[in-house]
Amino acid sequence: MTGQKRRSDTIMVPVPSYAIVPERDLGSQPVLEASHLGIEFGGLKAVEDFNMIIGRTEIAGLIGPNGAGKTTVFNLLTKVYEPTTGTVLINGKDTHGMNIVQASRLGIARTFQNIRLFGNMSVEDNVAIGLHNQIRYNMVEGILRLPRYWGAERRLHREALELLSIFDMQKLADVRAGSLPYGAQRRLEIVRALATNPSLLLLDEPAAGMNPHETEELMDNIIKIRDQFQIAIMLIEHDMNLVMGICEGICVLNYGRIIAKGTAEEIQNNPVVVEAYLGKRKEEAR
């Protein structure tokens, strides 16, 4: 567990283990507590001393230059990699030694930077996999088509369509997921992750490849999802409008280390962040 849960004084470098929990959530148990998290890939310290606490219904942002280690953090939190150092608690439970499936059952779900849909399956079946652990019947009931099969499948169909309606995708239910346009694939990944009924949703560059209009819509939808499902969301994004627009707390990574934490305003005015990331982006844009 990290130390005190108070907002950081952002200009310090590197920022030690401070929480970015909004005050309103301080009372309840955090969804995620990562402390001193680190991993090495053959000598390369991809992530080092990563500390973060996310509250019940917070929207947190994780930003930083390419190769900073953002996706690696997601992979550590979801147990794709076992961290070399540090601990991850999801809903208060230590995930040490767990695999991806066990972590998922603690209430963490994610999307992928390089889209990983079940490309040969229909849109609805993709969501059905998200619902896999909520609507259960066994293999024999499935093969013999026993009453439980029909009941469960009906519920599955209804809930899948309900979830798809978040992004107005019900009409696409029968389409092969692999043949969806790029933006729709990203949205489907979010729906599929939501279907697992997580308490923490990790989004890895959800707006990548979307046009400004789609991104605008996505921002509204992320807020809507948080409000409706009462979950915490942590997102990686290079689109600063999106990050600054909806994230209540932002964490900046550079070379695997946290260089700043704070609110959008604090981050934008942090000289270290401007030097390492934001400034460079402006130059590139020019």
């Binding site: 991806i100 499936v101 998922s104 079940f118 079946d125 996999i129 896999h132 093969i143 697992t196």
Partner: peptide, 30 residues
């Protein structure tokens, strides 16, 4: 009956999902 009904059931979907993308299937708790 076994193969066709299995394929179009909860278990069969899980089997196909693992084929299409193992990591994603695991992330969904399969």
């Amino acid at each position: 009956v076994v193969v066709l009904n299995l394929v179009n059931s909860r278990s069969g979907r899980a089997i196909k999902a693992i084929r299409d993308n193992r990591i994603a299937a695991e992330s969904m708790g399969v």
